[in-house]
């Protein structure tokens, strides 16, 4: 990735303009050709920097008001296998392995669920629990009560990539 790639990412964080030639507008903004912009986006997709290009739905506004961070204490030996299975459930938007901090935090698997009703959220949690079976020792669901800040990805153009 170079500084032009970073400029492209930064420029797209507010969203593509809803005009007939959105890539052309972005290209003008960065002062490169439309062809170069599209090639760079394609290349970043192929190398995995860009996961996908799409219209990103706002779950909450679409009626999914029961959004929970479910956290699970999983036998380390099975976490990758089980994480992959949980990550592919259609109601799970994100699924991550994160470190424990014993004794105050025992959970190592995080899965974000999205439901329209409390009943459906409970069913989703049961479904995850059933899948994890005996390899799960404990779990909790943390619902958010307030959004205190929500901003898009903010990056500097000279960021070091990892």
């Amino acid at each position: 990735m170079d500084h032009i790639d970073r400029q492209i990412i930064t420029a797209t964080q507010a969203g593509l303009p809803l005009t007939p030639e959105p890539y052309q507008s972005l290209a003008e903004q960065i002062d490169i050709s439309e062809i170069e912009l599209m090639q760079r986006l394609k290349c970043m997709q192929e190398t995995g920097v860009i996961r996908r290009i799409g219209a990103i739905p706002n779950h909450y506004k679409l009626g999914y008001q029961h959004n929970g961070m479910t956290v699970w204490d999983i036998d380390d030996q099975y976490i990758d296998t089980l994480g992959t299975q949980i990550g592919s459930l259609d109601f799970v938007s994100h699924c991550y392995h994160r470190p424990r901090h014993l004794p105050e935090w025992r959970y190592n698997l995080f899965a974000m669920i999205h439901a329209k009703t409390t009943e459906s959220a409970a069913q989703q949690i049961e479904q995850i629990a059933a899948l994890l079976g005996e390899h799960c020792r404990a779990h909790e669901v943390l619902y958010s009560t307030r959004i205190l800040k929500k901003t898009g990805l903010r990056i500097k153009e000279n960021n070091v990539s990892s």
Partner: peptide
């Protein structure tokens, strides 16, 4: 298509159209 997207955008049913970046590829 454009007017439908503009409506979805205005109602905040979509947060944006654009690339989603893989975590930790840019910064940490």
């Amino acid at each position: 298509v454009l007017s439908a997207y503009r409506e979805l955008d205005k109602l905040q049913f979509i947060s944006r159209i654009g690339p989603v970046i893989q975590p930790n590829y840019i910064g940490l």
